[in-house]
Simulated scan of single mutants.
Amino acid sequence: MPTETDHAAAAARRGPGPARTAVQLADGRELLYFDDVPGLDRSAPDQRVLPPHAPRSEVRYDPVQGEWVVVAAHRQDRTHLPAPGECPLCPSAPGRQTEIPASGYHVVAFENRFPTLGGPPAGGRCEVVCFTDDHESSFSRLTDRRLETVARAWTDRTVELSRLPGVEYVFVFENRGPEIGATLQHPHGQIYAFPYLPARVARALDMARAYRAEHRSCLFCSVVAAEEAAERVVARTDGFVAFVPEAARWPYEVHIYPRRHVGGLPELEPAEQAELMSLYRDVLARFDRLFDAPAPYMAHFQQAPAGPDAGLAHLSARIFTSRRAPGKLKYLAASESGAGAFINDVLPEQAARRLREAGTRPPG
């Protein structure tokens, strides 16, 4: 994991960045405003009457699979597909107070009111990150300036959350669409600060460790080199490449890697952050052009863990949709959910070709 000195040096290179204002919500949770420009008044108080925030999650160990499982029964009461005008992520307005006290905002990050993690039993922390106050927008429609603010918010939270006692892994992700279980339509993502190393992350690091021991080089760098020479590349920039992996599990799945070996978002230079965010936005827009409706998708960033294995990691963004054809979704069968044996109905080379072609079509 990068040291405090590394983080400080990276912050100095990035410059002052957008304005950052911390406030406290009515139940004691922290909320942070990240603004595109400085000087905005963020003093509006949370006027709701809420009980003190007290997460009740538990972390339990499965000795057969060797994996940790989070039990968060209180999440049964979380907001689910609210009616129009009742979105808790929209700005507050007279007569209707939401999770964000301000009447307008650029980017906000705040502790989840119904967190998967947090509290003494489980440890860790869960945050929500809203990308815009426009309920009808999407990540693929954000401006360049807003992309910079989102990237700096993600970087800020990665650094701060990795400092929390007991946190081993910071996971930045976004779910969009009721088809994949997203319960809120407003453009947002989440960040989990895990008190353990998630199973798939641990498995990838095991593979990277074994590869380094045999080849004296980075597994992920070798994957990037091999994929760049194949026919599954979707888009490129000077420093990054987006491709459909050879063994894609999902009908349309894209991984974005920096060619330079970096472990996480805090290690990127300002120009690299802008490049990554622009390519990420481009890929999401291509997903939306595949079919006749916006794509439901899951996206996440793989970053370096805390501890001695940090040097094995290689930053990547990974995006996939469960839509395999117009009006058809991929559901996990027993072989996939039960045995972990994925079956892909779309040839990865065909998926890459369709995504390349989607980049030449106008939106809408």
Rank of each mutant, 00 (worst) to 15 (best):
G189W: 03
Q190E: 12
Q190K: 08
Q190R: 05
I191T: 08
I191V: 10
Y192C: 05
Y192G: 04
Y192A: 11
Y192K: 10
Y192H: 10
A193S: 07
A193N: 08
F194I: 12
F194W: 09
P195A: 14
P195K: 12
L197F: 07
P198E: 14
P198I: 11
A199Q: 11
A199T: 07
A199P: 08
R200V: 15
V201G: 07
A202K: 12
A202W: 05
R203W: 13
A204D: 14
A204H: 12
A204L: 14
L205K: 13
L205C: 12
D206P: 04
D206F: 09
M207Q: 15
M207N: 15
M207Y: 15
A208I: 08
A208G: 05
R209S: 14
R209Q: 13
R209T: 10
A210N: 09
A210V: 06
Y211K: 14
Y211W: 13
R212I: 10
R212G: 06
A213C: 12
A213W: 11
E214A: 07
H215D: 13
H215Y: 13
R216S: 15
R216T: 15
R216F: 15
R216P: 13
S217Y: 02
S217T: 08
S217N: 06
C218A: 08
C218R: 07
L219W: 10
F220P: 04
F220R: 01
F220N: 00
F220T: 00
C221N: 01
C221T: 04
C221P: 02
C221V: 05
S222R: 08
S222I: 03
S222A: 13
V223H: 02
V224E: 07
V224I: 11
A226K: 02
A226R: 00
E227L: 05
E228P: 01
E228V: 03
A229S: 10
E231R: 02
R232Y: 08
R232S: 04
V233W: 01
V233H: 04
V233Q: 02
V233R: 00
V233Y: 07
V234T: 03
V234K: 07
A235N: 03
A235H: 00
R236A: 10
R236F: 01
T237C: 03
T237W: 01
D238R: 06
D238P: 06
D238W: 10
G239R: 00
G239E: 03
G239K: 03
G239D: 06
G239L: 05
F240H: 01
F240K: 00
V241I: 05
V241A: 09
V241Q: 06
A242I: 08
A242H: 03
A242L: 04
A242R: 02
A242M: 08
F243L: 02
F243D: 05
F243Y: 09
F243Q: 03
F243G: 08
V244L: 06
V244S: 00
P245Q: 11
P245M: 11
P245W: 09
P245K: 02
E246Y: 12
E246W: 12
E246A: 11
E246I: 06
A247N: 13
A248T: 05
R249K: 14
R249N: 14
R249V: 14
R249M: 13
W250C: 02
W250N: 01
W250S: 04
Y252I: 04
E253S: 09
V254L: 03
